[in-house]
């Protein structure tokens, strides 16, 4: 479903390649882990795969067609800091509705408390806000989620609860999942396949 062919990226001509000739293929419902220390380009890869950055070489395909630049992107990225991924002047309800009206069973599944809807982002904790971001990212168009250190700022209990819920949803909807993290133990628990491209 999601496919990256011969991807290469660097920031500026004179800088080193962060990755080159990188190939990746993910089937629906597959969960893939990408481990590695920070500063090696994992986050840049995530941004390339989800259409935030255009690679210098190679291209990204979804179902055999190049990733389109218009309309709702079928590959959605989740960030490490949910606080930066939401408009601080929007209320939670507006944030979750940005792409489309979330179905009530999704809200229940992610344990979104109805009392949050009227609050501002800074009134929620990191874990609560990350769940709000998940609701927003799980629109009906979404085929593949990229989780870039999504739970590395969260305590173990919140981490488990978010991943359990997300794995369930991914299985039901046959979403592809790419998990980027420097926590190898976490990747081993979550992923069927691990791509050691960025490791030593």
């Amino acid at each position: 479903m999601l496919e990256g062919r011969k991807l290469a990226f660097r920031y500026g001509e004179e800088r080193e390649w962060l990755f080159k000739d990188f190939d990746l293929r993910i089937a629906p419902g597959e969960i893939v882990g990408i481990p590695g220390p920070s500063g090696r380009g994992k986050s840049t890869l995530a941004k390339v795969l989800s259409g935030y950055l255009i690679p210098q070489e190679g291209s990204v395909f979804v179902d055999g067609r190049p990733l389109s630049t218009s309309g709702c992107c079928p590959v959605q990225l989740l960030f490490q800091h949910p606080q930066l991924a939401v408009n601080p002047r929007w209320k939670i309800e507006a944030i979750m509705r940005e792409s489309e009206e979330p179905p009530p069973e999704l809200l229940r599944g992610l344990a979104i408390d109805p009392s949050w809807l009227g609050r501002y982002p800074h009134e929620l904790s990191g874990g609560e806000l990350q769940r709000v971001c998940l609701v927003r990212a799980l629109g009906s168009q979404t085929r593949c989620l990229l989780c870039d250190e999504m739970t590395s700022m969260l305590d173990s209990l919140t981490q488990v609860s978010i991943w359990r819920t997300l794995l369930n949803i991914a299985r039901q909807r046959e979403l592809g999942l790419i998990v980027i993290s420097h926590d190898y133990a976490l990747l081993k628990k979550l992923c069927a396949r691990i791509i050691p491209y960025f490791e030593d």
Partner: peptide, 16 residues
């Protein structure tokens, strides 16, 4: 908290 660590079973004994 302890049992929810990925290395210790990744168990969800209770919601956050």
């Amino acid at each position: 908290l302890w049992n929810a660590l990925p290395a210790n079973g990744f168990r969800m004994a209770m919601p956050p």
